[in-house]
Amino acid sequence: MQRTLQPGQRCEVWIAGVTGESELVFTSDELLLEAPNWTLDGSALILNGDGKLWNFDVAGRTLSQVPLAGIPDLNNDHVLAPDGKQIFLSANDGHIYRAPLGGGAAERVTAVDGSFHFLHGVSPDGGELAYVGIDAGDFSQPGRLLTIPAGGGHSTLVDVGAGHCDGPEYSPDGKWLYLNTESFTSLPGHAQLARLRVDGTGFERLLDSETVDWFPHLSPDGDLASYIRFPHGTEGHPADLLVDVVLVSTGDWAAPLHTWPLFGGQGTLNVNSWSPDSARFAFVAYPLANTDSSKDHVRD
């Protein structure tokens, strides 16, 4: 089922700068958009909404649907191919697809293996995808980290412990996978940020916090990262609660450079939303009628 806005709720697309400023660039009280990607030419954001793919022209502030064929309704897991011409997409049938970024026919990448596949990362050379697999679509079971050739084929399980993991994403140099995982704690849902080498070695925790931390996204130059911080005790990454979007240096994950508090969660920052020049990134807020996301939107 597709997410929709509650009565009195609105969708807000924001662009934040690495020096702490933020700008509201799109708002709607009809269409719930999620998970912005930034195109490689820096001109547009790619988002999903109502099961479809959308292109938001940053300069012109216009939104248009990307015409896709041969794919079921989309969820909020989508990543551009390194060539900037194709996009990999997760659909609500549990499969990963590849399609032209400008629109056209989609091709299924994943096999019918009884699992649900949730895409999050594409290697810098475009040859491999990292995704989370849910056996038999049973969401009471933890998600597992897997990789697969971008053209399809055999999936490889990567061991990151028994806890649920999500958001696996390649570093810009292709040497690491960054993710969130519950493998460091016995507290239900207490996800923490981690990384491991692409060969499966060197699994390490990046930040030891009391909050529930999801979806680490490195800037293209590798110097900075954004992630979303849920309140202590949150299980999963639900929608419609007070969260923080956090900016850090990859040299010190424990010292936020800037923090953007907002009403959101699911859909806010599920995929990498950095601009190609590493100067800005995008996120989505979902304020209710009695909230004002223009006030106190930056907290250092």
Rank of each mutant, 00 (worst) to 15 (best):
L5S: 01
Q6R: 03
Q6W: 08
C11I: 10
T19P: 05
G20C: 06
G20R: 02
S28Q: 10
L32K: 03
W38T: 01
W38E: 03
T39H: 07
T39I: 08
L40Y: 12
L40I: 06
L47H: 10
L47N: 01
D50V: 03
K52L: 07
D57W: 05
A59V: 10
T62P: 00
L63A: 02
L63Y: 06
Q65F: 07
V66H: 05
G70I: 13
D73H: 11
D73N: 04
L74M: 13
D77G: 01
D77K: 15
H78D: 03
D83G: 09
G84F: 12
G84T: 08
G84C: 12
I87D: 00
D93M: 10
G94K: 05
Y97H: 05
Y97W: 14
Y97D: 00
R98S: 10
L101F: 14
G102E: 15
A106E: 13
G114V: 06
F118I: 07
F118Y: 14
D125R: 02
D125I: 11
G126M: 10
L129V: 08
A130W: 10
V132K: 06
G133S: 15
I134R: 11
D135L: 14
F139K: 01
F139I: 12
S140N: 14
Q141F: 14
P149Q: 12
A150Q: 04
G163K: 04
G167E: 07
W176F: 13
N180V: 12
N180P: 00
N180S: 14
S183R: 00
F184G: 09
H190P: 09
Q192A: 14
R195D: 00
L196M: 15
T201P: 01
G202E: 04
F203I: 12
L207K: 11
S209M: 08
S219P: 05
D223L: 14
F230V: 03
H232P: 06
E235F: 13
E235K: 08
H237F: 15
A239V: 02
D244A: 04
V246E: 03
V246S: 01
L247G: 02
V248M: 01
T250W: 15
G251K: 04
D252A: 08
W260I: 04
T268W: 04
N272L: 04
N272Y: 08
N272I: 05
S273H: 02
W274H: 00
S275G: 00
R280L: 02
L288D: 01
N290T: 07
T291P: 00
S294A: 02
K295C: 02
R299M: 13
